[in-house]
């Protein structure tokens, strides 16, 4: 599904290398987790994959179902099936959540040559999915993420994911800021989307989310590289021992 080879990225504005050769392959239908210390480059990886400005790819490649995504516009990557649940979802005053969702859903459909969703169908689907994430109608009416609590923003990300039905979902610390019940809701949302060849890359600091979303593979990222890859037990190891040993082992 997603294949990243020796990806090297520096900041556009300054001469600072952030990703120093990342190799990662997520197979169709699999859930991979990335853990790693603060500042190790996890969010940078997710931004570069989704096409944010400000980064320069200095080497390597990234493909989604065999297609080079690094040359695509962000909206083309989204239409190709890539989705990023932001670590810090953006507030957009003046744009209603519903307008935003419908515009996004229909833009992607259009890009894929599908018919637009009628407004009645859209409403029905959105209400249903919002309900399962405990997002009430009033929140849907508000401007995108404006006045949402941290946890509400994260649930809103998952609602967008559920509406857009992407193939490759990257969740950047979607669990941070969530209370125990919300974490369960989000995990249920993710699990409901699992299967059908859909893949996930879950960036997290905590084992807790991985209790609910069982990963197939766990990677440890440090200083711009994947330094270790293993099974779910690797996450438990980090939870107990921290990163120090792993980083030392590498050095």
């Amino acid at each position: 599904m997603l294949e990243i080879k020796n990806l090297q990225v520096k900041l556009e504005e300054e001469d600072k290398q952030i990703l120093k050769g990342v190799d990662l392959t997520v197979e169709p239908g699999k859930v991979h987790a990335i853990m790693g210390p603060n500042g190790s480059g996890k969010s940078t990886l997710s931004y570069v994959l989704s096409g944010k400005d400000g980064y320069e790819v200095t080497g390597g490649e990234a493909t989604l179902e065999g297609e080079d995504i690094l040359e695509m516009e962000p909206e083309e990557r989204a239409a190709a099936g890539l989705f990023l649940a932001f670590q810090y979802p953006v507030e957009i005053p003046g744009v209603g959540n519903m307008t935003f969702l419908r515009t996004a859903v229909n833009a992607q459909r259009k890009a894929r040559g599908q018919e637009e969703m009628s407004s009645t169908e859209f409403l029905k689907v959105v209400r249903e999915k919002a309900k399962s994430l405990k997002i009430d109608a009033e929140m849907l009416k508000r401007p995108v993420n404006v006045g949402f609590s941290g946890g509400e923003k994260k649930r809103n990300e998952i609602l967008q994911m559920a509406m857009l039905e992407p193939k490759m979902c990257i969740l950047d610390e979607t669990d941070s800021g969530l209370d125990v019940d919300a974490m369960k809701l989000v995990a249920d949302g993710v699990n409901a989307l699992r299967g059908e060849g859909r893949s996930f890359l879950v960036i997290t600091h905590y084992q807790r989310l991985l209790d609910h979303i069982k990963p197939d593979v766990v990677h440890i990222m440090s200083n711009g590289r994947i330094i270790k890859t293993g099974g779910p037990e690797l996450a438990l190891e980090v939870e107990h021992n921290g990163y120090a040993d792993l980083i030392e082992e590498q050095a």
Binding site: G51, P74, E75, A78
Partner: peptide, 24 residues
């Protein structure tokens, strides 16, 4: 720019995203 990227990352083409932000 942050809002623009957010919209585009959801598949909204640049022009439409800019229009949405302008109307907003």
């Amino acid at each position: 720019e942050e809002g623009l990227f957010y919209l585009r990352a959801r598949g909204v083409p640049r022009g439409i995203a800019e229009d949405l932000l302008t109307i907003a």
